[in-house]
Write a protein that binds this DNA or RNA. Structure first.
Lengths: 178, 178
DNA sequence: ACCTTCATTCAAAACGTTCTAAACGAAGGG
DNA sequence: CCCTTCGTTTAGAACGTTTTGAATGAAGGT
């Protein structure tokens, strides 16, 4: 195959591997995704194993993970009985899927814990000596700050998750803060 | 000390440790940050070592990391010759600092690599056979998608980084996408 | 019904990361 | 000028994570 095509393929796969790490996934997941993204045809486990030079077991497990995160899906190829995969090409779809499955939960539980802490402090206040009261007040300030932070995060998440199919460039140039 | 205060402290420290992991930092960094955030007074390395039950070496290294990320700063306590630290309490300041130091670079290089790939493909196109030409065209589509994605990411980053001192809750309720 | 072809699972190994404890270095006080 | 008190650095240990290779399981074709 042409040298330029190979070079582009390699750097893209490497870059997506890097990006995957960055998002807390394994690098292999990113490389698998990249390989699929740059293939006009769906690829089998054996194809992927050969291209990335990794074991079949690893391909199998990482592809299942990619599937769970909505980054790739199985695809039926007529006449073949192997499993074939293709990448979800819509990046925003991928982002939404990941945010929905991870960040969302994370923010919700954080807000829950913070709310509980505030309640706890307020209930305990009466029984505290002056020094402790001062500390409790200080804690409450910090809890408020943290709550404000997570509420913003929550709002941003909801906004992205609630956005329709195409969150393309033109649409997002209209983001306003303040 | 009061039970409620201890419980709140513990769950907050644990939660921030969790959050730190989530953002790709070590859990200890998050716990150190949380401990400082919930202390009205600056704390010394020995204080932190004792409270978190970790070695002094670990405290030292992790505190330097926190400093580099702008999450904590050294503070002089008159009469003492120990080093004292306090947490940066403005969460948005912390976020900006981290985004500026990591995500920014990441997005820039990604855009750089993608641009190079596009150029490379365009230059090579003439020398390709029909089959390769089709693949090159396919690659160019994918590169465009990826570029669009990273350009949005870049814009979002610039918006956050460019926002003034206080990016508080009221201000951000005005985020609009689309 | 058997044989072949795949995919999945799992235990062991390889790997990277992070902690600790000890050695080292710096700095101030007596 | 030594002694004490801190902080940093580093080599080794402990830990968790990921990969592999082999065993297992499932499913189609003959």
């Amino acid at each position: 195959m042409d040298k330029a095509l190979l070079a582009v393929n390699e750097s893209t796969v490497a870059g997506l591997g890097r990006l995957a790490r960055f998002f807390g996934f394994s690098e292999v997941m990113g490389r698998l995704y990249g390989t699929l993204l740059l293939s006009p045809e769906p690829l089998s486990l054996d194809d992927l194993m050969e291209r990335l030079k990794i074991s079949k077991g690893s391909v199998s497990m990482n592809m299942r993970a990619l599937e769970r995160w909505g980054m790739a899906k199985e695809v039926w190829v007529r006449g073949e009985r192997k499993k074939y995969y293709e990448a979800e090409p819509d990046m925003w779809q991928v982002i939404r899927s990941v945010l929905n499955g991870r960040e969302r939960r994370e923010v919700q539980t954080a807000l829950q814990v913070l709310g509980d802490s505030v309640t706890r402090l307020q209930k305990a206040e009466a029984a505290l000596n002056p020094e402790e009261k001062a500390l409790a007040a200080f804690y409450l300030e910090r809890m408020d700050d943290l709550q404000a932070f997570f509420q913003v995060a929550n709002l941003a998440l909801e906004t992205i998750l609630g956005s329709g199919e195409s969150l393309d460039f033109d649409a997002v140039t209209k983001i306003e803060i303040g």
